[in-house]
Design a protein around this nucleic acid. Structure first.
Length: 558
RNA sequence: GCCCCCAUAGCUCAGCGGAUAGAGCGACGGCCUCCGAAGCCGUAGACGGGCGUUCGAUUCGCCCUGGGGGUACCA
């Protein structure tokens, strides 16, 4: 299925308008008009409708009803469309032929795992970078929000034919890592009997003690004679290894996310590629030297501030921005990705703008997408609070997975728009997990599996099912909902809105549950039973597709 | 100050400029001699305020109010 129903109907409108324009001498605007096809809320208004006649009224200087009628009269005949009606003040309402509709259940089941799949992005290599938390501690719910979003977007890109690489970028050498090293050193000393105090800007949480304990278990007291600075320098990379090699990947895998590539920021600092990138920016007149630092001329290039890319310190170390520009260039120029998609938290908004400036200067901007998602707040001692590893207020992702399971946890993150702040009430999540919408959807899938078990007991299968005998209005209603799935895939991509999939899944499940109530699937009439089995099979296929993209399991039993 | 995001039912959230704004939880009332009641049906309940654009605004623009984020030679 590469053409959506929406596109098919839009093409029919296009043809009708072009014909009307030729017949009636309409001006050029008629041919240029964008045709938007929508699903009316009221079934009385048909299955699909367009307001194109209302939009054309002004440029054509004709009454919308007259335009609508002209379109209606020239609407191409097809097996898909039953009737075309005009409604005041100028809508053109299309009703699908129910015989065609129910037949699509056959097409959906035979497409199976390919239902909704397209080749729209075939041949494109796309990198999706998400989470990319500082490796200064275990994965928190705040870090994790971008996870399911990036994961689902990556799934959808792959579903549209792209060759996708899922990447986790580790900021493994910076001042925060130094702070972590120092905190570990203090805990290490504490384990050896010294009385210590974690400074306000240190990492106060227990996991730091775990790291110190690990070091002590493996290497004993061999560091005890060193200065704090020496210890901090020695421990920082060890701490990063534990976090980056063990904790973060474990949390990611448990959350159903597999990263193809883990890239370390330090490899760029050491490779000379940053210097090379700065040279390129300089050649493009996007760099200036001032106060012995190197600046991106972002202000001159349209931003409200300028930013340092190479510090004025003795080592002339690059800033996070400088390295990240190099990293993006490396991905797009050296590694050969056609696109890079970044899923970033709201706090990177300023960074995003400077990156945009830099990538524009480098001529790479058209190949970069960034999705910014808003913060996660959580209930801490009765109030909504912002998480922070340094403030000691965190909620671990794995604790949430332990409490509610991975499917419910993923659903929770995927149900709301990236533009909205997420308030996470752990107690509430646990209390409501047994009533979670995820189960509502999974239950529909399992219920269909159960119907098939019952059918098998009675020797019924979908073999030689004849869906043309499905003539109750309820049959077509369900299949029409299924036909929206390929459109949803497009919408998720275009709007970068994974949460549309959870909404659709809910709608689909609700539609099935209602159908189930009113339509006996396995009944006395074998032909009808076979046909309805085929229909619910199509529902199951579609639910499985949606849940698959969401990374949520589709159980046979619950 | 400037920039970005948000404000929809008691709570948590959907809603592509369209024709009667939807779910879930919570409240109330119904439905299992029949394919899974983790379900179904019904009742009550909402677009923060103002101005504008438009044939039509919850949706777009501006202003106000209230939240959140950013505005580092941190990441």
């Amino acid at each position: 299925m590469t053409t959506t129903l929406r596109d098919t109907i839009a093409a029919a409108f296009r043809a009708a308008i072009d014909r009307a324009a030729a017949d009636l001498d309409w001006p050029a605007e008629a041919r240029d008009a964008a045709i938007e096809v929508e699903r009316p809320g009221d079934p009385a208004h048909g299955d699909l409708a367009s307001s194109v006649a209302l939009r054309l009224a002004k440029p054509l200087r004709k009454p919308p009803l007259a335009i609508a009628e002209a379109i209606r009269d020239r609407f191409p005949a097809s097996e898909v469309v039953a009737t075309v009606e005009v409604a005041s003040p100028g809508f053109v309402n299309v009703r699908l032929d129910p015989r065609w509709v129910v037949r699509q259940a056959d097409a959906i089941t035979s497409a199976g795992a390919d239902f909704g799949r397209t080749k729209a992005l075939a041949g494109q290599r796309i990198q999706v970078e998400y989470i990319s938390a500082n490796p200064t501690g275990p994965m928190t719910v705040a870090n994790a929000r971008g996870g399911p979003m990036g994961d689902v977007l990556a799934n959808v890109l792959a579903f549209m034919g792209a060759e996708v690489t899922r990447e986790f970028y580790l900021n493994d050498r910076n001042t925060q890592i130094d702070v972590l090293g120092r905190s570990v050193a203090l805990r290490y000393r504490e384990l050896h009997g010294e009385k210590v105090e974690i400074p306000a800007d240190g990492y106060p949480l227990e996991y730091v003690i775990d790291i110190a304990q690990r070091i002590r278990d493996h290497e004993g007291d061999r560091y005890i004679g060193m200065s704090l600075d020496e210890q901090a320098r020695a421990f920082a990379p060890k701490a990063v290894d534990i976090v980056a090699h063990e904790w973060l990947p474990r949390a990611a895998e448990r959350f159903g996310m597999h990263f193809d590539v883990w890239t370390r920021e330090s490899t760029f600092m050491d490779s000379g590629y940053v210097g090379d990138t700065i040279k390129e920016l300089r050649a493009r007149d996007a760099i200036e030297d001032r106060d012995s630092a190197v600046w991106l001329k972002s202000k001159e290039l349209g931003e409200d501030i300028e930013s340092v890319v190479i510090r004025s310190d003795p080592g002339h170390t690059p800033t996070y921005l400088g390295i990240d520009i190099a990293y993006h260039r490396h991905c797009l120029v050296e590694r050969g990705f056609d696109r890079k998609v970044d899923i970033w938290g709201a706090n990177t908004h300023g960074h995003m703008r400077r990156m945009r400036t830099a990538l524009t200067a480098l001529g790479l901007i058209d190949r970069w997408d960034v999705v910014i998602y808003q913060y996660v707040k959580f209930m801490h001692e009765g109030v909504l609070a912002k998480m922070g590893k340094r403030t000691g207020r965190i909620l671990l992702l794995e604790d949430v997975i332990d409490a509610v399971g991975v499917d419910v946890a993923r659903w929770f993150f995927l149900q709301s728009s990236p533009d909205r702040t997420l308030d996470f009430d752990f107690e509430l999540a646990v209390r409501q997990s047994s009533e979670n919408p995820a189960y509502y959807v999974q239950y529909a899938h399992a219920r269909i599996a159960s119907i098939f078990r019952t059918a098998a007991d009675r020797g019924l299968t979908t073999a030689s099912a004849d869906t043309s005998i499905l003539t109750s209005p309820g049959d077509a209603v369900v299949v029409k909902a299924l036909l929206r799935f390929p459109e949803l895939v497009q919408d998720v991509m275009e709007r970068r809105a994974p949460h549309l999939l959870t909404g659709y899944a809910l709608e689909l499940a609700g539609m099935f549950h209602a159908y189930y109530k009113d339509h006996r699937v396995v009944g006395d009439d074998p032909a009808l039973s076979r046909a309805r089995l085929r229909l619910v099979e199509a529902v199951q296929v579609t639910l499985k597709q949606v849940l698959g993209l969401l990374g949520i399991s589709a159980p046979e039993t619950m």
